[in-house]
Simulated scan of single mutants.
Amino acid sequence: MDSLNPDHPPLVETPALPRVWKFWGTALWGLGIFFAMFVGQLGAVVLLVGLRGLPMDLASVQVVGREPQALALSVIMGLPATLAAVWLAIRIKKASFADYLALYWPSWRQFLLGAAGLLLTVLAWEVVSRSLGREATPGFMTNLLKSGRDNGAALLMLFAFSVAAPMSEEVLARGFLFRGWSESFLRVPGAIILSSLVWTAVHLQYDLYFLAEVFSIGLWFGYMRYRAGSLWLTILLHALNNMTAVVLTMWLGS
């Protein structure tokens, strides 16, 4: 048998590495994924406008979109749209969805390290905010969350901002974008920085001060995504950060 013949060793198939979108492919697909997220969010508001029998125009969409319940629902509906677009991009490359996004559970040690770094980052910004006489939370978010609480949408908003938003944003930034860009000429450091910038751009409703805070948190999430090799870790950290902010604002804040 050839398998026992040293002159004819058995052939060993080397498993092919998963195909990954590189810099421009990741960038273009990232735009498409963001557009899909936007369409999903907008579609939820348009649906509410139709169900209420309001005129289907921009004014009605703007009015309904400002309501806490509608905003929470739009954030929730952005999640399936984001996942569908990411799945399509990965499917075209014939790669595993879980492998491409590093959907692996972290260890407790990795989670505690990530949480500790997040806590230190948030506390540092809290100290800076107090020294500058600034609010630790954007005023419009405080008003939105408290309005949702008073109008019976507290749990819906808690789910939207603590589950749906972290999953959508992490799948896009630390999942799809980081994976592709880290295997391009940017390598890991460039991918962490650029994906953090994109994540920060998603929060353009904030002023420059809060955008700087978001960017610094994004850098820490990116580092933990690389160190742990787990997107679930950054999803959990993101959810923890948002849930703490929502709970403190809606129920414990003055």
Rank of each mutant, 00 (worst) to 15 (best):
D2F: 15
L4D: 14
P9A: 03
V12R: 15
V12P: 12
T14W: 11
A16F: 02
R19A: 14
R19Q: 12
K22E: 14
F23G: 04
G25S: 10
G25A: 11
L28W: 15
L31K: 09
G32N: 01
V39E: 06
G40C: 04
Q41G: 15
L47M: 13
V49S: 04
V49T: 01
G50N: 12
R52A: 11
G53V: 07
P55Y: 02
L58W: 09
A59V: 13
A59I: 10
V61H: 01
L71F: 14
V86Y: 05
V86T: 06
L88T: 12
I90P: 05
K94A: 12
D99F: 01
D99H: 07
L101N: 01
A102Y: 11
P106A: 05
W108Q: 12
F111I: 13
A124S: 14
V127M: 05
V128M: 12
R130W: 13
R130L: 15
G139M: 06
F140Q: 13
N143D: 14
L144N: 01
L144S: 09
L144R: 07
L145F: 15
G152K: 06
A153V: 09
A153K: 08
A160T: 05
V171M: 07
G175A: 12
G175T: 12
F178I: 06
R179D: 02
S184I: 05
R187Y: 03
G190N: 03
V198C: 00
W199F: 14
A201W: 00
H203N: 01
L204E: 00
Q205D: 00
Y209S: 00
V214G: 02
I217M: 12
I217C: 10
G218R: 08
W220I: 15
S230H: 03
S230P: 02
A239Q: 06
A239E: 02
L240Q: 11
T249V: 13
S254R: 14
